[in-house]
Design a protein around this nucleic acid. Sequence first.
DNA 1: GAAACGTGTGATACCGGTACCACAGTGAAT
DNA 2: ATTCACTGTGGTACCGGTATCACACGTTTC
Lengths: 368, 368
Amino acid sequence: MATDHQNHPAAPTITEVAAAAGVGRATVARTLGNYGSVSEATRAKVMRAAEKLGYQPNTLARSMTTGVTKTLGIVLADVANPFFSGVLKGISETAKTAGYDAIILSTDEKLELERDAIAVLLAKQVDGLIVASAAGRSDDVSHLSSAIDRGTPVVLIDRLVDKLETDSVVIDNREAARSAVASLIHNGHRRIAFAWGPVTLSPATDLKQMHSILDEALWSDGERLRGYLDALEEAGIPFDTALITHVLKNEGQATRAVSGMLALADPPTAIFTTETEATVGALHSLRAKNLRLLKDVSLIGFDDSPWAAVMEPPLTMIQQPMRQMGVVASQQLIARIDGDTSASKKHVLPSLLVARSSDGPVRAAGSE
Amino acid sequence: MATDHQNHPAAPTITEVAAAAGVGRATVARTLGNYGSVSEATRAKVMRAAEKLGYQPNTLARSMTTGVTKTLGIVLADVANPFFSGVLKGISETAKTAGYDAIILSTDEKLELERDAIAVLLAKQVDGLIVASAAGRSDDVSHLSSAIDRGTPVVLIDRLVDKLETDSVVIDNREAARSAVASLIHNGHRRIAFAWGPVTLSPATDLKQMHSILDEALWSDGERLRGYLDALEEAGIPFDTALITHVLKNEGQATRAVSGMLALADPPTAIFTTETEATVGALHSLRAKNLRLLKDVSLIGFDDSPWAAVMEPPLTMIQQPMRQMGVVASQQLIARIDGDTSASKKHVLPSLLVARSSDGPVRAAGSE
DNA sequence: GAAACGTGTGATACCGGTACCACAGTGAAT
DNA sequence: ATTCACTGTGGTACCGGTATCACACGTTTC
């Protein structure tokens, strides 16, 4: 055994406890497992022996026979992303109180890693899965559907997967984005930049093409772009592909993309960001161009953070109920594990536009 | 079986594959496990059968016999804290490439939850543990020492535990804090607030008492306070207990504590924060009091974040190599699992004072 | 006093793999 | 022709629990 290079005392098993207590294995199992009938005398003997030997159950062995691991598999795009770590907090808390543990795997937005992660989790015999999938509309999601077929319930979070008939927890991304952009428009903005999440898209030349590209987007980001287009359409503002950052994989690129837009002959007067990284990137561009928030450019973005309130000016942000999403997702999952066979539910939680001071009326151009 | 409410086809086992391929179980195991010798012909037969049945190994069963789970147990104070989620990223990546999975448990800084977490992980037979312990100097750490005794290697991260002779990965918190505070002093500051991490301390009336209280602090925070005291001492600045926030459990309290100090007759001209939450809290206080960074109060804090660079003015921060800490910790742990029995190592990684613009010369008082 | 019942207990099969061992079959060496 | 070595294969014990079953013993019932 690899870990046994030092001659450590092997962990005591139920057999050792039985020997020490002078009873049979089954009796020990009944005592420690609190089932069947055991006389007070032997119960005490067993307890004492277990105590003395420092007996710790081996849950692997237990799971072998019971077929239950009391473990949830969590597959997220990026644990370091504040949104996901917020969700994670909700999941961990709920799981713990229900007696479950969570195994968390990060996919870095790569479908291939997601497949690996699911396979690992299934091999570990998790009782259920919560996944924020990186699968686009046309991707093969057999790794998820086969898990469901095998009887392992799956709850999707943040990202929906069209072809999958299973429970999900999301916010109304489209409407949240639409109303945020609409409020910018209401303030007179007509040139509004859309700073994308951590996804690569091929550039669109027109609105129609944009819509077809949208079908390939990750669910939440795609919906947010739809909401943006909705708001534009409502106000009769023409779609301009130059105001959409298509390629945006990290903060550095977000900065470059937004800088490019600000250098346009007809630059945006407002920026809408779909993600924390994009927000920070946009802020970097503004700083580099010596442009001030509110005075020169308005900004509204997705995913409120504690620091957003202490920016100068404080940032208007769309707040997702991250913790709550985690709670609902794990509750739903555990209900399924416990045998709930009702039709699959789509939980749509409310988001909140936290109005602060980074957005306002558009200023006269060329005031500098 | 709980998950079997629907009559799902049971996952195929090695026995089914053997039957389908018309060979013995052992032969299948050899083929799929890539060991021993198998003829090309039978190998092909087995592979075909496994493929057709959609065979997936059960790692629980495997671990039963091998005694190895290829799983790392990670115990952190708070997954949502950017520092820990950064560390986590390093751990996940390293673990994955080495063929390990990670089970992450969060303790919310509570020693009791830490004990539970370790017990769960040990029951799950993890091959090793990485833990940021919530144990103070006088706390019982038998949950950790018994793990080590049982032959499960433990690597401590961020927080050291005095009594424990095991590997660790930290930065030189004392020196990092000392030099940061020294640079504030160099700029003429003599009234420097110290905004504590998420820990409760009983208030100290004098320096001596402060030192004894320090002995009970969580390791990293305690070292940071030591560094602060070092810098004060070097410069011959008297210690003032009113400038140390003793009770600080969440952002709201950080805000209140700093606000209290700013309302002092002789308020601080600079603030040193040991944690992201404390930094944001201090920023809130400043904003509430209508005080501006740099102009009115200087600030240096622990744990750089992407948004710190886009604040107005950009924040001077101490950057910890979070990802790198995770990488080193998991590499060290895996080395132990692989049988490295050399003396335990303390890895001290370099931190970096990222000088931006939130600190500068002290201004003349009463300039308003 | 025999039958019926109930409680406490231990044997033992089993979960799904791994690993050791025995054995058959082949070809080379003596 | 016999021994020896080697390869491919299957049988099976085992990991540490759980769960079923049979049995022994004492008590109640007829």
